[in-house]
Design a protein around this nucleic acid. Structure first.
Length: 225
DNA sequence: ACGAGGATGCTCT
DNA sequence: GAGCATCCTCGTG
């Protein structure tokens, strides 16, 4: 089982930067989850950055530019928190998505974790997703990896630079080869190349990057006559 | 292989 | 009530 390497934990200062710097820098590092018995970990292979003045960002429009005042409404408020805080929200009413808050307190930003390659405690991950039979399908998507790692509402707002859930730099860390694309599943700010992923890694999510034609509205339900 | 559709809940109009 | 930072299943080829 994995030795606990608390000295390798990424500190909050790591996240006190623009999300577009943090997101690529997280590739090749580990997400670590400590259980009551044992530890699971995965190499981060895919991330997305969300920033101020970003129409695809949950906190978009929350800052009033003339005054700089924050309108503390809903989930967006938590994106102004201190760097290294977990921002976990429910997507499509079904899946929890894990983000880490970036930039100093008062400046909103976050990085979405979209893909992991399991490297430790894989049995526990399978146990959390009993219907999955192949390792690849365990964690190759933002909703899949939270399910496998047992991440949900309970982790929202918690310090993600401490056990039981944190990021760490592995001993053999090397800066990986990285590619970029537009982000997946969004309909606004589709031109920004703020998705980062490892080259030639099969644990990158199968989603298609958004483009101006990719986000056609689903067929609208016909109104009853 | 690929595409359509459903599940399901929170936020804002 | 619409619009989601998704995933899985079940049709067709």
């Amino acid at each position: 089982m994995l030795e606990k390497q608390h000295n390798a934990i990424l500190p909050s200062s790591f996240f006190d930067r623009p999300a577009t710097e943090v997101a690529p820098d997280l590739l090749g590092r580990w997400l670590v989850r400590e259980w009551a018995e044992g530890v699971s970990a995965g190499v981060i292979v895919e991330t997305e950055a969300y920033m101020q003045d970003d129409p695809a960002f949950h906190a978009w429009g929350v800052v009033d530019p003339p005054s700089g005042l924050i309108k503390p409404t809903g989930r967006a408020y938590d994106l102004f928190g201190p760097p290294g805080t977990a921002y976990v929200y429910l997507c499509y009413g079904v899946h929890w998505l894990l983000n880490v808050v970036t930039e100093r307190e008062g400046v909103p930003g976050c990085v979405l974790i979209r893909g992991l390659q399991p490297v430790n405690g894989i049995e526990a991950l399978f146990r959390n997703r009993p219907r999955i039979t192949s390792v690849v399908n365990l964690t190759n998507g933002p909703g899949k990896l939270t399910s496998a790692f047992g991440i949900d509402k309970r982790h929202h707002g918690t310090d993600i630079t401490q056990p039981p859930l944190y990021f760490a730099t592995p001993r053999d860390f090397e800066t990986p080869a990285i590619q970029t694309s537009s982000r997946i599943g969004i309909s606004r700010a589709v031109d920004r190349q703020w998705r980062y992923y490892m080259t030639n890694n099969s644990f990158v999510s199968p989603g298609t990057p958004s483009d101006v034609t990719a986000d056609r509205r689903k067929k609208r339900r016909r109104a009853p006559l």
